[in-house]
Simulated assay, not measured.
Amino acid sequence: MPSWAELPIGQVVRLDADPDAVALALDPLPDDAPAVVTYFAAEERSVADLAASVLRELDKAAIALFPAWLPGAEGIEGPSGVNVAAVQALALRRASVTGHFGPFLAELARRALTGAPSALAPEVRAAGLVRVLADSFGRARLAVLVRVPDGLGAAAREVLVAGCEWLAHRGRAGVWLAGAPLHDDRVRTIATPLPAAVGDAREAVPVPATADRAPAVAYPPVAGRPHPGSASERALEAALSARAWAGGRAWNQTYRPGPLDVPIRVDLLWERERCVVEIDGPDHRAPAKFAADRQRDVLLQLDGYAVLRFPDAQVMTDMDTVVRQIGQFLRNRRRAEG
């Protein structure tokens, strides 16, 4: 079985695994894997439409992840002329020493502050976005895991494969298909390096048919920050930042209970108090993820951690209760430690 590092970049392949099992195996991102973002495909009428959809979603992810891909831009916010000039200068300086295409990086930095659309060609954007997203997670390469929905007709499947080939070739990204079958001889199927415990968790909620949803991209968090795509994580951080007792917290950390254990990514950690807070979206109700959550909780509890879980709906609608319960637990732990 290949390692994640051996999965191809710059071409389209199909993974021989359930996409939910793949997602579990990639959270946290293995050391030998490229950065991976997930594209939830929907039916498109043409290759140009599919390319535009993918670029639009990758662009949203890159802007949400700013300034992870632009060191030195931390704390620069707002569309003032001074701020825009500062991030563009940083981008051009970074491009000069990293091989990024300077005009693309400078435009993306400006748009991260202003929200303006891109004026660059799709081919330029594809290559630039792939590099920027890989940089955001400290990786040299990027793979796009394309979740193929049920219900695609023959013409839509043809468009999807051709569009994925365009992205792989123009962006130099790995494009890994998983989900509904495509029946396309151009796409070879390869073995997927899943840990045994993850590979056995095959039962999952199916991806909705393409007519039921719009295309979207999901991406990992950056260590030390709330996930920019999670409104509940950002809201909880805003609430905690005003409380002195909440000091010592760290977002989206990777924790390994033992040298032979699979690493665990936790949403929010107070290491000294051995407290983990998890914010669960609707996807945590899927059987595979629910089972994985329980296994992670047991490993953390055996290592002395308490795991406090809150549905993201509760975080967004009853923040006072969530904050009060976290605070009560931390104060109890600190009193017990003397």
Rank of each mutant, 00 (worst) to 15 (best):
Q253T: 14
N332V: 13
D27Q: 12
V146N: 06
D31G: 11
V187M: 07
F66D: 05
A116I: 05
G151H: 02
I190Y: 03
P287M: 08
V187K: 03
P67L: 09
A246D: 06
Y305G: 04
E44V: 05
A223N: 08
A109Y: 03
R170E: 15
D283A: 14
H183V: 13
E107N: 10
L65V: 08
K289A: 14
D49W: 04
V217F: 00
P226T: 05
S80T: 15
E271I: 08
A127K: 11
D18S: 12
Q253M: 13
G199W: 01
Y305W: 13
H169F: 04
G171P: 06
A25G: 06
R56N: 11
H100E: 15
L26T: 06
L330W: 01
P8M: 09
P215A: 14
A134V: 08
T317G: 02
R256A: 14
T317Y: 00
V84R: 06
V161T: 04
L308N: 04
A204K: 09
V175H: 01
A119D: 13
A155D: 13
Y255P: 00
S136H: 04
T192I: 05
L236N: 00
S96L: 10
E123H: 14
L133H: 07
V266F: 00
L145C: 09
P228H: 06
Q328F: 05
R213A: 13
C275S: 12
P208N: 09
A61E: 03
F66S: 10
R272K: 11
A64Y: 03
A154Q: 13
P228G: 07
W166Y: 11
P263E: 10
V175A: 05
P208T: 10
P2F: 07
R45V: 11
W69V: 10
I9H: 10
V144Q: 04
A73Y: 02
G138R: 08
D261T: 11
L108F: 04
A85N: 12
L120R: 14
A109C: 11
V276E: 00
E165H: 09
V276C: 02
Q11R: 15
G163I: 02
W251G: 00
V175L: 06
A51V: 15
I76D: 03
A21F: 00
L268M: 07
G224Q: 03
L260W: 08
D185N: 10
A143M: 03
L120S: 12
A62W: 04
R213D: 08
G327V: 07
R249K: 13
L302F: 03
V175N: 02
G115Q: 06
M319N: 06
D267E: 08
A313P: 00
V217P: 00
E278Y: 02
V12M: 06
R256Q: 15
I63T: 15
R157A: 10
V37S: 02
R333K: 14
A127P: 02
G10W: 02
P259R: 13
P206F: 05
A106K: 01
I190D: 07
F137Y: 15
D27S: 14
E43A: 15
